[in-house]
Amino acid sequence: MPDSQATAAADAGAPPLELRGRMETLLTLTLGSADPQQLRAALIDKLRQAPDFFERAPVILDLAALAGQALDADALLALIREHRLLPVGARHGDAAQMRALEAAGVPSLRALVAREAPAGGDHGGDRSDDVATAAAPLVEPPVAGAGTPTVVARPVRSGQQIYARGGDLVLLGAASPGCELIADGSIHVYGALRGRALCGVGGNRGARIFCQNLAAELISVAGHYKLLDELPEALRGQPTQIWLDGDQLRIELI
């Protein structure tokens, strides 16, 4: 065989270069302030909640709230990188902000914005695979139209995190211990729920958790949480629903 590299490529039937439009799932960092002091404090606070999950995570900067404000792109990027996040793109900024960020090496995603809305709508069954196999430990599907559920067909493993942004999360497999299911809406788990489940994280107090087999390490509705040890013995392993009644977390058999 003449050249091992060439042989491998030929065997795999793959051309040396391929350009494909793939939907990747990325974190969005929405900036509510251009003030470095405020941002620093907020970042420290945010990252303290889950330091490892965000380690070297690629993020998209959303500047929608900063329209018209002066932005020191270099200082902003240095601050974000200092907290071990990797800015890979920016959007919703005004022309001057986008130019400054592009000059600092962070491309503008304006072109992608227009495509996003229809993509969320006609995604249907395909999306579940994308979500389960995405590279980052934190898996966030692209912004879907309100009420579009994120459906995950594979088990969610220890160390994996799934975030259903703006809607419900439906998990057909099991959620292993050490995983995190997060949704702005409700969470439905058809396998055993053994990891953590946090619904209504955007403050939706009407969100609920439904599961076939409750063995969760932690359950939370809109920030009100309970640990496994606090769950009544009689409900463990049972099909249950969990919701917020006033400030009281309620767990009941279905």
Binding site: A132, T133, A135, P137, R157, S158, G159, Q160, G178, C179
Partner: peptide
């Protein structure tokens, strides 16, 4: 078993097949 579960998650996300979107 817990560690095996963790490594399965890595196989599904950090392998060449996962990155290329090939058959898992």
């Amino acid at each position: 078993v817990r560690d095996s579960d963790r490594i399965l998650g890595i196989l599904q996300s950090r392998s060449r097949r996962a990155e290329r979107g090939d058959e898992p």
